[in-house]
Design a protein around this nucleic acid. Structure first.
Length: 557
RNA sequence: CUGCCCGUAGCUCAACUGGAUAGAGCACCAGCCUUCUAAGCUGGGGGUUACAGGUUCGAUUCCUGUCGGGCAGGCCA
């Protein structure tokens, strides 16, 4: 992977020239890293250790050879050989100054790369069936999915956000009978209330609107209630549209937009499910047993073969799933990423097996999955488990209303997806540095406040000399800013938006430390302008990073 | 019982994907607190990276096993 770090690129170039002489015929990967220990310099390289074995030479001697051939650069203050054969680079402060005008010139584009080269990627997330409001787990998916899409967009991918749902299956039938029961005056617990039913208060709301003959509109549908509680089909259609609209409001409150809503039922009406089954049968990947049709998923690494067509004639859920992913592939998305809870991990092997078995040349390992664990909510030291509207779970909208869209987004993205997350409502509301969102947003607001106090035009900083920026806090901040492009490239590649959150809190920490140590609006004009230029670069980077997470950057707090 | 994921300071989490003395924030302790935004600032203690082996110059990272936790294992989705 080529470096996306502006200063690393320089080191790589210098070392590359030296290696052309020292080891012209030995391939080696030039990994430049930032040592944890500051006394080891700004960058270090382990090539000498890598080359020691193939060249049969002492790594420290090799390092010396490389240094002898290293072209001089005014930005490199000195080099040294350390430890087992590390080559350490200590840079001049001027090496870091270049990052400031670069960020100011690139603005919102700072950090972008072109690794994606315009390729299409489809990210599927949330994909909640219309049976109730979105819960906090969907919130985690929405935050992850949207951030991931933003990250991919910065890396030059053509991103498509998709929401897949089922408007027909067993769950929807249960929804219809639940609403019907409410429409006929029954309540959960009454004699005659269906055994399998949704019991949240929202079911009553749907029944009320249905009886009132209201009209609801959601993504691709608009339904007017017939008001006839004996018409189960009408009840179903109305309930689905109502809850899709409800979820649209949840998503709007969370500022997540989808490009497309894909219906599972369309896979049946278009014949895609049937065609998929026929292909699998024709390819000899299936067999009949106990009156059912089985797919040999074990040929592709699954634990056991899976039933595709039940003895009652219906398909199991993974068949339309396979058909859906074939459609994704045929729609031109050679890369697809699905975001789901870890409780669905069992389906991965069988969907992938199905995609291989159809023999359409779909890449192995298609699609990618990003799995996340559950979210628990704590408030006042106690776990919150229910909400008024949904009854049995905390909704995403509850969480947003208790705190804020920004806090929910930031918090849900702050941990690796595969670790359980405990959402602390009280912390999200705290207006102090314990609250990481506040901490980052506050850094931005502080910079804005300084500029307001200064009263000049940011554009007038373009020609400012950065030579006065030599204090440790200033160097640390510039080094941090230079890392940003690499951080977001890695975050995209590793499907790890949490890296952006960690970066931003660290960057904010560097900024606050500098702010506490130095006054920006000093009398000396050269120092003042240099510091303002750096502060502006910092502000731009914070804005860019927060934008990826879908978190706002307020100018005042 | 089997598969996948996880196990790092008292707590919540990092560690640039194999680098040098494992880092932050809470909490704790000690000082400070007349400032562009204030709800604080500066420093300090704290670790056998669950455990035992293995791979190599070098392991939190890769491999094997053990222990502990989560999620799955349906002709449910």
């Amino acid at each position: 992977m080529s470096s996306t770090h502006p200063i690393k690129d320089l080191i790589v170039r210098l070392l590359g020239e030296a290696l052309d002489t020292v080891a012209p015929d030995t391939p080696v990967s030039l990994d430049i890293e930032r040592p944890k220990n500051a006394t080891h310099g700004d960058f270090s390289c382990n090539v000498a250790m890598q080359l020691a074995r193939p060249l049969k030479k002492n790594p420290r001697e090799l390092a010396q050879h490389i240094l002898n051939e290293l072209p001089a650069s005014p930005l490199v203050a000195r080099t040294e050989i350390a430890g087992a054969g590390f080559i350490n680079f200590h840079l001049a402060p001027a090496a870091w100054h270049g990052i400031v005008p670069r960020i100011r010139a690139e603005g919102a584009a700072y950090g972008r790369g072109d690794a994606g080269q315009g390729q299409r990627v489809l990210v599927e997330f949330v994909s909640a069936n219309p049976t109730g409001p979105l819960h906090v787990g969907h919130g985690r998916q929405a935050a992850l999915g949207d951030a991931l899409c933003n990250l991919f967009a910065t890396q030059g991918w053509a991103v498509h956000r998709e929401f897949y749902y089922n408007d027909a299956g067993v769950q929807i039938a249960t929804l219809a009978t639940s609403v019907q029961a409410r429409a006929k005056g029954l309540k959960p617990g009454d004699a005659g209330w269906p055994e399998a039913a949704y019991n949240g208060e929202y079911i009553g709301d749907i029944a009320t609107d249905f009886l009132a003959g209201k009209t609801v509109r959601a993504d691709d549908r608009e339904v007017t209630a017939s008001g006839n509680a004996d018409d189960l089909d009408a009840l179903r259609e109305f309930a689905v549209a109502y809850l899709r609209h409800e979820q649209d409001l949840d998503l709007k409150a969370f500022a997540v937009k989808f490009d497309h809503f894909y219906l599972e039922s369309s896979l049946y009406t278009s014949g895609r499910v049937e065609a998929t089954v026929n292909t699998l049968v024709a390819n000899g990947k299936t067999y009949e047993h106990d009156g059912a049709l089985w797919l040999r998923t074990t040929d592709y690494g699954d634990d056991k073969d899976r039933v595709m067509k039940k003895s009652d004639g219906g398909y199991t859920y993974f068949v339309p799933d396979v058909a859906y992913h074939i459609a994704k592939w045929e729609r031109g998305y050679t890369r697809a990423i699905n975001i789901q809870g870890t409780d669905h991990h069992g389906t991965i092997a069988r969907v992938r097996a199905g995609l291989q078995a159809v023999g359409l040349g779909i890449a192995e390992g298609y699609p990618d999955y990003l799995l996340h664990t559950m979210v628990r909510v704590m408030r006042g030291g106690e776990e919150v488990k229910i909400s008024k509207r949904a009854g049995s779970y905390v909704t995403l909208r509850d969480l947003i209303e208790w705190t804020s869209k920004d806090a929910v987004r930031f918090f849900l993205l702050s941990r690796k997806p595969d670790t359980e997350y405990v959402f602390d409502v009280d912390l999200a509301l705290a207006k102090n540095n314990d609250n990481p969102v506040y901490y980052v947003q506050y850094a931005h607001a502080r910079i804005c406040r300084v500029f307001e106090e200064w009263g000049g035009q940011p554009a007038s900083l373009a020609d400012a000399s950065l030579a006065p920026l030599t204090a440790p806090h200033e160097l640390a901040l510039m080094q941090r800013l230079a890392e940003y492009p690499e951080v977001i490239a890695t975050a995209a590649q590793e499907l790890s938006p949490h890296l952006v959150v960690h970066y931003l809190t660290t960057l904010a920490g560097d900024f606050h430390a500098w702010y506490n140590a130095e006054k920006f609006l000093v009398d000396d004009p050269a120092t003042r302008l240099a510091r303002l230029a750096l502060a502006e670069a910092c502000r731009i980077t914070i804005v860019n990073g927060l934008a990826l997470l879908g978190v706002s950057a307020p100018e005042t707090m």
